[in-house]
Nucleic acid binder design. Structure first.
Lengths: 185, 185
DNA sequence: CATATATTTATAAACCCCTTTATATATGTG
DNA sequence: CACATATATAAAGGGGTTTATAAATATATG
């Protein structure tokens, strides 16, 4: 078996952390006019950064969710910027907030057309969901690593649910091997 | 058997009484702007008090239902306030309306996790209802005292249907003894 | 015409779902 | 071209779910 490098690209990293003991979001909204805060619609305040291009959700509890980053490094840079903005707005924030990556979304290309109907039949309903008139992708739930792969007829795929980049590679390798074994690729 | 004091808290007392021979709710609504009266939606007029924090439902017949009180004393204070407000609005009201407690809702904590599935199996369907996907609590109907206990996996419970605080204590003691006897606690 | 439900109020417990953000994929509809 | 459709994920509120209980109306079945 030839072990080729998986042609994968991380598209989105979602992470959470706690930057302060608590935050007065109404006061923060006034200090940061570029932010969005509509408590009756959603309890978090939305703060978008241009660089790294991300969106942070800040909560009354001091917890923060960062989405949109393409690397872990960018998540850290984004959260650092959020902390600085909040600190400059007159709030006390933690110096080294511990960041937890909650989800990594990646895309990849198998460089071969896929017969999704054949794949759905060969692998079975326990792990697969495929309803083309509802959504063109085939949903494949892997147990180890515990991620979800969306397979498309074009051979492109999306992997979501991973917490580490390596899990994305593992998952894609598994899919490739299974498709090869069943001569579906 | 060690007779420990039950860790119980009354959360709501519902009581009814008659404060006048009859009431013109439309006139009362005008005299008490803070009240709510939408006869096509519900025949009673709703009057909320801040202290004691309660809600009273007044009917054309002069009957009144008081909800939200945490003690019998507060029910009395609330109904006294309602009578005063109605009297000040120019209505004739009874001096000493006889109050009947109709329902007492209480919460308690057994301070131990509960295996609701095991409890449901051990006690049986005649007295128990447990449909976790519909509601997380197990419904236990006691015949004496005639109350209903909602048991939760956390060990916390809700007792409703009692007319006297002592019935709440009796019911909880019975539940504890039964769970102990069946080694479910 | 007689029972049933529904309406409303309060209250605890603990679950569910939804709200919002980002992101690739690829279909369909307006 | 802009939306849903579908996936995962955290955050915190809101809503709904269940139980009992009175009151007085309106509908609805038997």
């Amino acid at each position: 078996m030839v072990e080729k490098k998986v042609d994968m690209k991380i598209e989105n990293v979602v992470a959470s952390t706690t930057i302060a003991k608590e935050l007065d979001l109404s006061k923060l909204k006034k200090a940061l006019p570029e932010s969005e805060y509509e408590p009756e619609q959603f309890p978090g305040l939305v703060l978008r950064l241009d660089e790294p291009k991300t969106a942070a959700l800040l909560f009354r509890s001091g917890k923060v969710v960062c989405t949109g980053a393409k690397t872990i490094k960018d998540v850290e840079r984004a959260i650092k910027k959020v902390c600085d903005k909040v600190a400059n707005a007159g709030f006390k924030v933690f110096k080294k907030p511990e960041i937890t990556v909650q989800n990594i979304v990646a895309s990849a290309n198998l460089h071969a057309q896929l017969n999704l109907i054949a794949i759905a039949q060969a692998i079975g309903l326990e792990k697969i969901e495929y309803e083309p008139e509802q959504f063109p992708g085939l949903v494949y739930r892997l147990e180890e690593p515990k991620v979800v792969i969306l397979l498309f007829g074009s051979g492109k795929l999306v992997c979501t649910g991973a917490r580490k980049a390596e899990q994305v590679n593992e998952a894609i390798k598994k899919i490739i091997e299974e498709l090869n074994a069943k001569r579906l690729l």
